[in-house]
Design a binder for these strands. Structure first.
Length: 755
RNA sequence: GGUGGCGUAGCUCAGUCGGUAGAGCAAACGGCUCAUAUCCGUUCGGUCAGGGGUUCGAAUCCCUUCGCCACUACCA
């Protein structure tokens, strides 16, 4: 085992990577640099993952080909990784002939071995373009609002969920032709059939490969919950053609071909790629991924390779990193929260400073929160105050008082014994890809150097013991040489600059702990500029746009009570249930037709099976959250939610229905009638308002009626406003709900919440 | 709702096989003056989220409650 094959997760081409995404690519870079320095034959492979719906759609919207779009983004990725000094042996892409060939080859082997199955499903088809259309590729007039360019999955104008078949005069978004419904067949990989092979491999790999506890848990969790056959084909153009009769107009689904990219990218680099990928005897495969990618690398991809029956080089060590969070929340592409690769470049802060911070805090066992304040502290305190300071003070001394000459030092001095011991530990940690711990230990070693310097007080001793002082300083210079070696995988520019000051080129791992080879050092240059308060404050403000907005919103919401927000945000109305049928594909759900008055009808889905029989609901008037964003539940659309009360944990209302006197103690108890049902010990009580006209808006007691209709809210926004039951009265912020001139009450549930 | 994870010092995080709770930063004090106001030392700081259990012994293993995060769902 003297070859090391290293990969980092292939970034999807369609994004600009942020600091969190960069961790994997950077981590693998450290490991690869370490391996090269130690003399292993090393290959570090990465590249962009380019196929799939997301790029195809995006390209179509921008009126360019997917290939053009990918090339544009590929350059952005490439530029960012170059800036961060990532020494790939090859940074490739998946849209290559090699990728097609190898992916098809693996597929055909799987097919020959009987691990591929076929299933038939229904999908829209465009005769003009001779292709099946994903729902979102169908456009037409929205049956609800009349918007002419509604997408087949959802109308962007009114937000209603659609079935492509509902669209008035549907058109293909690709060619503007009229699509029709057709049957289509898709291929599936039979993971359950490969499972025995997988488990055999897994048992050994997970143990020897030093996987994180999290990774092992997730993998076994996946297998335990039951592997399913997974579709590996799609009706798209932008992808690898399926090389099988009956499927030649289809392409492979991205997740099937993406990991094969590791192999094909190697193949674009060297014709001898099989020396790496079909050589399990000599090659160790190390993969660096994020925790969101674990099952694909421990289950899906190994299964694909194992199913071929060929001797592939399979994953050994997997280093999965946790998430890097930003200030108060998660990095988010869609909300623009965080620091992205191009942002980092724009700050003017050099790549090694970023690399330093990311590795010093690498989220290895748990998530880590990036804050600008912490960034400043760590850079000024450790990178500058510790490491750079040692380099600077020692070399300054040698230059100023000893003409830059390095003395011959005693190799068996106890100083070196300590240093070598530390270095051995650091090396051992790096062998296990424990990057953060080893990096911190390197700084501890630099701190040891500072301590030695301080305790020896050379600024005093040089006056009466110039020779002894020269020896001390020379020992420290050798430590600095070692630090340059140790630090090289992490901050390569800096390592190079230190080496140049020492007058040497490319010190290697094998030089650690040795004495000799140094002659004269040159006057030290400043390695890093301190991060000053005003710069950090400016950066924090600059990259916190969404943060300030969020803080502002939170502040506003604290100032207005739940009652005000209820009126401002929620539109609750009465509605009559006109029909109830069981959900065709779910056994806990009903699908109800409801009338809102004025001839308006809607369909909603409710999880009331087992709580209410259909007859108990039909003809009743309920209270509807009318401005909820529509959603699809198991394929049935639901435009709103009927309100029901559940008892609070520990509250009565369950267990003893006979004790629940209707409306006991509640004002207006006799009015909006309530009924309840229970199943097991769960009680769900629908709020009824049978004597109120459908379409009536719900208001709060002693509050002005809402002025206008609120916009649509998501289910999460809905639940942010607590609607509670207290002593059988339904209320928000202490104010009872009223509909018409009645107060909304419950019979069964005395204390609880409504949802 | 399900699954997985997390909750440890003011902050950010370690804590291996169960054996007297750790680091850095922050804070307080002292020392040094070679060094980018840098470095060295001392001190302060904890009911390991709460409760129960197993054990001679629990941050660690089991049960349970609460809070947070991620994924997911026949939540709506």
């Amino acid at each position: 085992m003297n070859k090391r094959l290293i990969t980092s997760a292939l970034p999807y081409v369609n994004n600009i990577p942020h600091l969190g995404n960069l961790i994997q690519v950077l981590s693998a870079d450290v490991f690869a640099r370490f391996c090269r320095s130690r003399g292993y034959e090393t290959l570090y492979i990465c590249g962009t993952d380019e196929y799939g719906t997301a790029t195809e759609t995006r390209a179509h919207e921008e009126g360019i080909t997917p290939q053009e779009l990918c090339t544009r983004y590929y350059k952005i990725h490439d530029e960012i990784y170059r800036w961060f000094n990532i020494a790939f042996d090859h940074f490739g892409r998946t849209s290559t002939p090699e990728h097609t060939e190898i992916t098809q080859g693996i597929f055909l082997k799987l097919y020959e071995n009987g691990y591929i199955t076929a299933k038939t499903i229904q999908q829209l088809y465009s005769p003009a373009s001779d292709m099946f259309l994903a729902d979102r590729y169908v456009r037409g007039t929205c049956p609800h609002c009349g918007y002419e360019h509604a997408r087949g999955d959802q109308c962007e104008h009114c937000g209603k969920l659609l079935d492509p078949a509902e669209l008035i005069s549907p058109r293909s978004a690709i060619d503007n032709s009229i699509p029709e419904m057709r049957e289509t067949k898709h291929l599936y990989i039979n993971l359950p059939a490969i499972l025995p092979k997988l488990q055999e491999w897994l048992k050994i790999a997970a143990e020897q490969g030093n996987w994180s506890r999290n990774a092992v848990q997730m993998t076994y969790g996946w297998i335990r919950d039951g592997l399913k056959e997974r579709a590996i084909t799609r009706d798209l153009k932008w992808g690898i053609p399926v090389p099988l009769d009956g499927y030649r107009d289809k392409v492979f689904y991205v997740w099937f071909d993406a990991p094969i990219g590791y192999i094909s990218i190697t193949a674009t680099l060297t014709e001898e790629w099989e020396r790496w990928w079909k050589n399990p005897e000599e090659v160790e495969l190390f993969q660096f991924i994020g925790k969101d990618n674990i099952p694909f690398h421990t289950v899906v991809f190994p299964s694909s390779l194992l199913g071929t029956g060929e001797p592939w080089t399979l994953l050994k060590t997997m280093s999965s990193s946790e998430y890097l969070n930003y200030e108060t929340g998660q990095f988010s592409k869609s909300r623009g929260v965080g620091v992205f690769g191009n942002d980092a470049i724009d700050t003017g802060i050099p790549p090694d400073v970023w690399r330093f911070y990311i590795f010093y805090n690498r989220p290895e066992t748990s998530d880590f929160t990036f804050t600008w304040r912490d960034f400043q502290e760590k850079v000024n305190g450790e990178l500058i105050g510790n490491l750079s300071n040692l380099v600077n003070r020692a070399l300054t001394f040698v230059c100023r008082y000893y003409d830059g000459r390095v003395a011959e030092v005693e190799s068996d001095h106890e100083f070196f014994a300590t240093v070598r011991e530390q270095e051995a530990e650091i090396t051992a940690m790096l062998e296990q890809a424990r990057l953060r711990d080893s990096f911190r230990k390197i700084f501890a070693l630099a701190s040891y150097g500072n301590r030695v310097f301080q305790n020896a007080e050379p600024w005093k001793t040089r006056k009466y013991d110039p020779q002894g002082t020269h020896l001390l300083l020379s020992r420290l210079v050798y430590l600095i040489r070692d630090l340059a070696v140790l630090v090289e995988p992490f901050i390569p520019d800096t390592a190079g600059r230190i080496a140049r000051m020492l007058g040497i080129e490319h010190p290697r791992w094998g030089d650690l702990g040795t004495t000799g080879g140094l002659g004269e050092v040159s006057k030290p240059e400043i390695l890093f500029e301190r991060l000053e308060d005003d710069l950090v404050a400016a950066l924090q403000a600059r990259f916190s746009g969404t943060q300030t907005e969020r803080a502002e919103r939170e502040r506003r919401e604290r100032e207005t009570g739940p009652a005000e927000r209820f009126l401002e945000r929620l539109d609750l109305r009465t509605a009559r249930i006109t029909a109830v049928r069981p959900h065709p594909k779910a056994d806990k759900l009903y699908v109800e037709e409801i009338a809102l008055g004025g001839g308006v009808t809607r369909q909603i889905v409710s999880g009331l099976v087992g709580h209410y029989r259909a007859e108990e609901l039909e003809g009743r008037t309920i209270i509807l959250a009318a401005n909820l964003k529509p959603a699809k539940l198991r394929g049935e659309k639901s435009e709103g939610m009927l309100l029901a009360a559940e008892p609070a944990a520990g509250a009565s209302g369950a267990g003893e229905p006979e004790a629940a006197e209707p409306g006991a103690g509640a004002p207006g108890a006799e009015s909006p009638e309530a009924g309840a049902a229970k199943r097991g010990d769960e009680v769900v009580e629908v709020l009824f308002a049978d004597d109120v006209e459908p379409g009536t808006r719900v208001t709060l007691a002693d509050m002005p009626a809402p002025a206008s209709d609120p916009p649509q809210v998501s289910i999460d926004e809905f639940f942010e406003i607590p609607i509670e039951v207290r002593d059988h009265v339904v209320q928000v912020g202490g104010r009872p709900l009223q509909v018409g001139d009645r107060t909304v009450t419950t019979t069964q549930v005395s204390e609880g919440k409504v949802g």
